[in-house]
């Protein structure tokens, strides 16, 4: 699985961090998302799916393989 984060679209809501803390983090000063791993393991698929679903900016894409 490959995850894409569109940083300019990100509105720094932190919803991805709540859904998938192993895959996303936030910058301390303004909360913009940071992609921790572009190729997370399959065990994180549900978390990533939830992150995609809750992101208010539609800034996360899951490229499944």
């Amino acid at each position: 699985m490959r995850v894409e984060l569109d940083v300019p679209k990100c509105v720094a809501s932190g919803q991805c961090v709540m859904a998938a803390p192993d895959v996303f983090d936030q910058r301390d000063d303004d909360g913009v998302a940071i992609l921790l791993q572009e190729h997370p393991g399959e065990e994180l698929l549900d978390d990533v799916r939830e992150a995609v679903a809750v992101c208010p900016a539609a800034a996360i894409r899951l490229v499944e393989r």
Binding site: V11, A12, G14, Q26
Partner: peptide, 11 residues
Amino acid sequence: RRTVNGPFVVK
């Protein structure tokens, strides 16, 4: 929004 968002970062 980025200037006021810091305190609301999840961690």
